[in-house]
Simulated assay, not measured.
Amino acid sequence: MLFQMSAECFSSQFVTSVVSCCPADLKQEVNGKKETLKGFNVKLQDTILFPEGGGQPDDHGLIGDVPVLRVTRQGAEAIHFVRSSLEEGQEVQLKVDWERRFDHMQQHSGQHLITALADTMFGYKTTSWELGRQRSSIELDTPCVKPAELQALEEAVNEKIRAHVPVTVQLLSIDDPAVEKVRSRGLPDDHAGPIRIIDIEGVDANMCCGTHVSNLSHLQVIKLLGTEKGKKSKTNLIFLTGNRVLKYAEKSYSTERSLENTQSCHENAFLWQSNLSLLRDMAVLIAQNFKNSPQRGNFFSLHKKEGDNEFMNIIANEIGTEETLVFLTVGEEKGPGLFLLAGPSGVVTEMGPRVLEMLQGKGAGKNGRFQGKANSLARRGDVEAFLQEHCKHHASEEE
């Protein structure tokens, strides 16, 4: 069985069959303690689950309803560790843990972009990299990176993201002369099959087995957090890409809010202004995240404890509501709050009063916007289901 992690990194489901299932152990660390799990190593006829390699962690997902806890590579074969036995020869459906997959795609493509421009702009070569659980790092072959260089590099990578540069995959034979022209740190000794090249148009061509986005716009944004002293006169560059930037902004906002109670009035005013700015930036990132998602639909829903009407309107404006129905709420999860329903004018006019009733609120609507105050957000889930059902019905009518 050859592992076929082809150019289609956006596949989230796949039907295949079980080739073999053998008893096996998995050693892993849980809450700082090492433990050994009893289970099975499964080989499949083909797979869309990426095995750990090239600095990228493995995919997780399901084989049928059985969770895949680890995927490793043995030559050209992918080995899936599961806790339950699977029958050899049976047909199964694979499902990828998409949130984990897309996060890895963003971080890995972000690393390629940063690596390429750090080399082009300053001659700093990448000697290794690590995709961490919360942040990622690139080891650069230089004793230091100046603050001005860091700022210039961050501006340059984000300019490429805004330019919507395509990212493509090429499969070349090992004796193809083109292989000599691409960036590479060498092939593993047990490599088999064609050479896989990740090409960021006009920026970089690199030998790589990992999963990547198909356009730099899917990265949303890159934030270079700073540098740390590395080993042997090298520097570790710490970065976040895509959804991780959004989570970092949310965490920073919550931290600043928690500090307000311990600050003076003057300091509180400064923090309040900082929080407003951070909240606006977060709204833009949330909208970009939805717009750039390859699995976006015609409905977007979000609840945040912190926020205001401007926060919700920024999200709606950035997404664009001519064809997308947007439902946003802020406030206590089951208490009072604010809401916004935005979308095609006719749909909002029709659905707005029903949403208002379910949220026990007060509000009004015009020009494709219906917003107001909710006395209780306890039925928010019911409103979301009601709106989703309408979107599905509307989509089926158009088909």
Rank of each mutant, 00 (worst) to 15 (best):
R135K: 11
I174Q: 15
H393R: 14
N261T: 12
I222S: 05
A178S: 11
G226S: 08
Y124Q: 05
K181N: 02
A118T: 12
L278D: 09
L62Y: 11
C209L: 04
I319R: 01
Q107I: 05
D382E: 15
V96D: 08
G53F: 05
Q263R: 15
S12P: 01
V326L: 02
L237S: 04
A287C: 06
F300R: 00
E91M: 04
L246M: 01
G110E: 10
G368R: 03
A192V: 14
Q388E: 15
R369Q: 14
D46L: 06
T262G: 02
N206A: 13
E88F: 01
V182T: 03
D199G: 00
C21G: 09
H394I: 11
G110C: 11
R183A: 02
R70C: 10
N236H: 14
K334Y: 04
K247S: 14
K95Q: 13
E130K: 13
Q28D: 07
T349D: 14
S84D: 14
H108K: 05
I314V: 09
E389V: 03
K34C: 05
W98N: 07
Q107D: 10
E8Q: 13
R162L: 13
K366F: 07
L171P: 09
E180Q: 12
P166E: 07
V66C: 15
V167M: 14
K223Y: 10
C22G: 07
M351C: 07
K234M: 12
L187I: 00
P294D: 04
R244C: 06
L153T: 02
H393T: 13
N268H: 14
K251F: 05
H60R: 14
P336A: 10
N275R: 13
N31I: 02
V330W: 00
S12D: 13
G55M: 08
E399G: 03
M121A: 03
I48W: 03
I198S: 08
L69H: 13
F300H: 06
F386M: 15
L328D: 03
V348C: 10
E52K: 09
V245W: 01
E180H: 08
G54H: 04
A156V: 00
A192L: 13
A316M: 01
T47F: 08
R354Y: 12
A156W: 00
T349N: 14
A78M: 13
G368T: 09
P177L: 07
F370W: 10
M282Y: 05
N206C: 15
V92A: 00
E318T: 10
L117K: 05
L225D: 09
E260N: 07
D97K: 00
K362L: 06
I314K: 04
S6Y: 09
W129I: 01
M358I: 15
L117T: 05
D65K: 14
Q111I: 00
E8S: 10
V66M: 12
M282T: 15
N236S: 11
T115R: 06
Q295T: 12
R101A: 01
